[in-house]
C-alpha cells in the first residue's frame, strides 16, 4: 500500500471517529435566575386587593379545522370524534378561553414565596392538556405522557433556554423549569406536528389563564396602579389600566375582536 493510501485511510478513520462523537438533544443547562424576588417585603394580605374580570370575543370566531391523526394510529384511536384545532376556543357567553391575563407593574419592593408545586402538562390523545398554561420562574413544569406513543417536547423560547426531550410511553414525567419571564413560549411536538401549546412564565404570582367561562381572578394584589394585559395566541395582546386601593376589588373586561388577528 503506498503512502498516500495510508494518509487516506487515516483521514477516513479520523472522520468516522468525529462522526461518532455525538451530543445530547438539549443545550447545557443555564444558571437559573432567581425564581422570584425574595429580597423585598411580603405583600400585606390585609390591604391587598383583587383584580377580576373576563375576556370577551367580539365577532364570529374562525371555524376550527379538523386535525388529521390518520398517520398515527395510536393517536387516532384515542378519539371517537374528530379532533379540532384549539387556536381560538370561545367560552361561555361570548368569552374567550386560553387567554393568559397578567399584571404589569412595579413589584420590586415585594417578595414572593417560591412556587414549588409542579404545574403539569399532559400529552393525552396526542394533544396537550392544557393547551395554554402559566407558571412562575423556577416553578417546576411536569411533562406527562399519557399516550401509547412517543412524543418529543420542544419549547421554542426567545428568552429562555431551548430544550427538546423525547418521552416514550410510560416514561417518568420530565421536570423542567424556566429561568426568565416570557409570554408566551410555544411548545411543539415534532413527531406530531399538530400538537401545540403555549407557556407563560412570570416572576410574580399575578397571572391566570382563562377557562370555560373566560373569567380570571388575580388575588393578593398590593395597592397600586397596574396594566392588566391579556395575551392570546391568535389575537396577540390587549391592555387595560387598573388602580387598586387598599383591600379593593376591581373588575376588568378586555375584548378581542375576532376579525383582528394581531400577532404581538
Amino acid at each position: 500500500m503506498n503512502k498516500s493510501l495510508w494518509y487516506f485511510a487515516a483521514a477516513v478513520t479520523l472522520a468516522a471517529a468525529m462522526m461518532s462523537c455525538g451530543g445530547k438533544g438539549s443545550q447545557p443547562s443555564e444558571t437559573a435566575a432567581p425564581a422570584a424576588n425574595t429580597a423585598g417585603k411580603p405583600v400585606d394580605s390585609a390591604t391587598a386587593g383583587t383584580v377580576t374580570g373576563s375576556i370577551k370575543l367580539d365577532g364570529t370566531p374562525p371555524k376550527p379545522r379538523n386535525i388529521n391523526m390518520a398517520a398515527e394510529p395510536n393517536c387516532a384511536k384515542a378519539h371517537t370524534t374528530p379532533v379540532q384545532t384549539e387556536d381560538v376556543v370561545p367560552g361561555d357567553g361570548g368569552t374567550l378561553q386560553n387567554v393568559i391575563v397578567y399584571l404589569k407593574g412595579d413589584f420590586s419592593q415585594y417578595s414572593f414565596p417560591p412556587a414549588t408545586s409542579p404545574v403539569t402538562i399532559d400529552q393525552k390523545g396526542c394533544q396537550y392538556h392544557p393547551h395554554v398554561l402559566a407558571l412562575e420562574t423556577g416553578e417546576p413544569l411536569s411533562v406527562v405522557n399519557s399516550d401509547q406513543t412517543t412524543h418529543n417536547i420542544h419549547p421554542v423560547p426567545k428568552d429562555n433556554r431551548e430544550w427538546n426531550e423525547s418521552q416514550p410511553p410510560g416514561a417518568q414525567p420530565i421536570m423542567q423549569t424556566f429561568a426568565r419571564p416570557e409570554v408566551a413560549i410555544p411548545v411543539k411536538c415534532n413527531v406530531h406536528p399538530w400538537m401545540k401549546a403555549y407557556i407563560g412564565v412570570f416572576n410574580n404570582p399575578y397571572f391566570e389563564v382563562t377557562g370555560k367561562d373566560g373569567s380570571f381572578t388575580i388575588k393578593n394584589v398590593p395597592p397600586g396602579t397596574y396594566t392588566v394585559t391579556a395575551w392570546h395566541e391568535a389575537y396577540g395582546t390587549s391592555d387595560q389600566m387598573v388602580t387598586i386601593g387598599p383591600s379593593e376589588s376591581k373588575s376588568v373586561t378586555i375584548t378581542f375582536k375576532a376579525t383582528s388577528a394581531a400577532s404581538d
Binding site: 462522526m19 445530547k24 438533544g25 426531550e165 415534532n190
Partner: peptide, 20 residues
C-alpha cells in the same frame, strides 16, 4: 427535531418509526 438526539435516534438505531 422529532428525534432530539444524535447520532443515535432515541438512543438506538431502531426508534419507533411513527410521525416525524
Amino acid at each position: 427535531l422529532s428525534v432530539p438526539d444524535w447520532p443515535l435516534s432515541y438512543g438506538s438505531l431502531t426508534p419507533p418509526m411513527v410521525g416525524g
